[in-house]
């Protein structure tokens, strides 16, 4: 009696396992069938670097008119809206006064040229970016392959921690649907939507097809772009031969954008 009950339970247990395992195994088998071998790779002419960086020769800029075409080139390629209300403004690259861009470096009696010259400001693509540390969804991240601090808009939940963390004001929040404020849409690049943060992407989409960033292209040589970790690159050559400054260096974020003043 005792014996047969135990046998019955054992058999029942084993068949229960068998019955439930089958669908699981089937699912695994199906999974393998559904994902045939595919390949993902870079385009042949893509520009690559270990850490993209930028040197801006500010001696070439005398008035806001000199910056205008550069800002426009960037904002047109990336469908950045132009919103009048400064609380809702969205910007990827913009003009700044010396004492705002470099607060620690402004002198009591500043020389006339830097006092009045316009300075270009954009995301510094820091080597040690505070924005990436605070992002709860890893929507903003430092890309291992090329050092660009990117936004993955698909993950952004609009919490704006990154805006609080960025010491440079490089990030803008879409308080409203940007589409009505884009005069001419570049149809090959997505817009953004209400509720996400955005900023400069060092033209990741242009580098991928072998083009330099739009601002560098529009700058007539005043903006030089290249690999900071390659001692033979043009940016490193400029850094060797010119005295340069970076924004708020003391914070330890290690900006990748250098300024010749």
């Amino acid at each position: 009696m005792e014996d047969s009950r135990r046998r019955f339970l054992m058999l029942a247990g084993i068949s229960a396992v068998g019955l439930t395992a089958k669908p699981v195994l089937d699912a695994f088998a199906a999974e393998q069938k559904q994902h045939p071998t595919i390949g993902l790779k870079k385009a042949k002419d893509a520009l690559t670097a270990k850490q993209w960086g930028m040197v801006i020769d500010t001696r070439n800029f005398h008035s806001a008119d000199d910056l205008e075409p550069i800002i426009e080139a960037c904002h047109k390629t990336h469908n950045v809206p132009s919103i009048e209300n400064e609380h809702h403004e969205v910007k990827w690259i913009w003009e700044e006064h010396f004492h705002n861009a470099f607060p620690g470096l402004a002198q009591k009696y500043q020389d006339e040229r830097t006092e009045h010259a316009p300075f270009l400001a954009l995301c510094n693509h820091c080597e040690n970016p505070p924005c990436c540390r605070v992002c709860p969804t890893k929507a903003t991240f430092k890309r291992e392959s090329d050092g660009i601090v990117l936004m993955d808009f698909h993950r952004c939940i609009g919490c704006r921690f990154c805006m609080a963390a960025c010491p440079y004001g490089s990030r803008s929040f879409n308080f409203r649907d940007p589409r009505p404020f884009i005069e001419e849409t570049n149809k090959s690049f997505p817009t953004r939507m209400k509720g996400v943060v955005e900023k400069c992407n060092f033209c990741a989409e242009r580098l991928a097809v072998g083009k330099l960033p739009a601002c560098a292209e529009a700058s007539d040589g005043a903006i030089v772009f290249g690999d900071l970790y390659d001692p033979a690159s043009e940016v490193r050559e400029l850094l060797r031969t010119n005295y340069t400054i970076r924004r708020k260096q003391g914070l330890g974020t290690e900006p990748a954008v250098y300024y010749i003043v």
Binding site: P36, T37, I38, G39, L150, D152
Partner: peptide
């Protein structure tokens, strides 16, 4: 696709 493009900088897809 979007993961590969945005996060891995790989934009070319090779199908089966």
């Amino acid at each position: 696709w979007r993961h590969s493009v945005v996060r891995n900088a790989e934009r070319t897809f090779v199908n089966t």
